[in-house]
Amino acid sequence: MDVPIAANILGTTGAVCWSIQLIPQIIVNYRRHHTKGLQSSMMMLWATAGVPLGVYNIVEDFNLALKIQPQILTALSLLTWAQCMYYAKCWAVRKCFAATATLAVILGGIQAALIFALRIAKDRELSWPLTLMAVLSACLLAAGVIRHYWDIYVHRTVRGISFLFVAIDAAGDLFSILSIVFQRKLDILGIIIYGTELVLWIGILACGAVYNFLPWMMKREKREQDIVEEPVSLHPMPSSTSVFRTASCDGDSVTRRVVSHD
């Protein structure tokens, strides 16, 4: 397989994962009508991280999927942030929409300006501005996830976050790394950007296994054991012939009919 084709396929797969990663979280927030445990700061950090990540991927001329990927990240992060403001801060729908639209325009304008500026810098063989974009995006993405580590430490559980969202996001990071590996030119900074977040998500999944899954399994096994060990009480039956019990008409007593065999 041609290298650019492999990179495009893997990059597209990663972009698809990033396109749907926050959808499970958005659905969970809508169904339970709260965002308790979900950090609004994480969503804002991710929305902001999409700007330098988009600048880096576009100026470095990655495949189309990786160029679109940061824009999707910013859009979904802003939508989830709006949910946090609506449910947790009790913002009105109009206020959420106005704030989200304003932030989207501002972040989009900043990204467009940086793309033009950094292309000029690249033509002049200045490498540090692009390096700054890579470091900044990696730091913002990592900071958003690390915010949940503090919540896990305080509450000793992974709360407010969909594990399906975590798994899909981690898969998106993995496919993005593979896409960069298959580029004609290996980009170490790009691998660091996605690799940092991938490692942090693996840590979140591990915390979920320790603090959520294992206690749930232990409670389930204990409940099943209690059911098995519960004594069964047997009521003594008369040692006569067949006994049929029917309720009386007034419902206050029980009439017994004893039928004896000839």
Score class of each variant (00 low, 15 high):
203 G>Y: 13
40 S>F: 07
70 P>E: 05
66 L>H: 01
75 A>W: 09
94 R>W: 09
111 Q>M: 14
32 R>W: 05
207 C>F: 15
169 D>L: 15
60 E>M: 08
67 K>N: 13
4 P>F: 12
180 I>A: 02
89 K>D: 15
206 A>Q: 12
216 W>D: 08
159 R>G: 09
119 R>A: 07
46 W>P: 02
161 I>E: 06
119 R>I: 04
60 E>K: 14
56 Y>N: 00
207 C>D: 12
159 R>A: 06
127 S>H: 15
248 S>H: 13
91 W>Q: 04
177 I>Q: 01
224 E>M: 12
31 R>L: 04
66 L>R: 03
115 I>K: 10
99 A>M: 10
66 L>E: 02
84 C>A: 09
116 F>D: 07
117 A>K: 15
96 C>H: 08
16 V>Q: 01
126 L>S: 13
17 C>M: 03
17 C>E: 03
61 D>V: 12
166 V>R: 07
183 Q>W: 11
34 H>I: 01
202 I>C: 09
242 S>P: 14
245 R>N: 10
198 L>G: 01
240 S>T: 11
1 M>D: 11
257 R>Y: 06
261 H>L: 13
4 P>Y: 14
50 G>M: 01
190 G>S: 01
261 H>I: 13
15 A>M: 14
42 M>F: 08
208 G>D: 14
130 L>Y: 04
111 Q>G: 13
52 P>L: 01
165 F>Y: 12
205 L>V: 15
11 G>A: 03
3 V>K: 14
42 M>K: 02
119 R>W: 11
33 H>I: 08
149 Y>F: 01
176 S>L: 00
199 V>N: 04
138 A>C: 11
150 W>G: 07
154 V>Y: 01
202 I>E: 08
140 L>W: 07
54 G>W: 02
241 T>I: 12
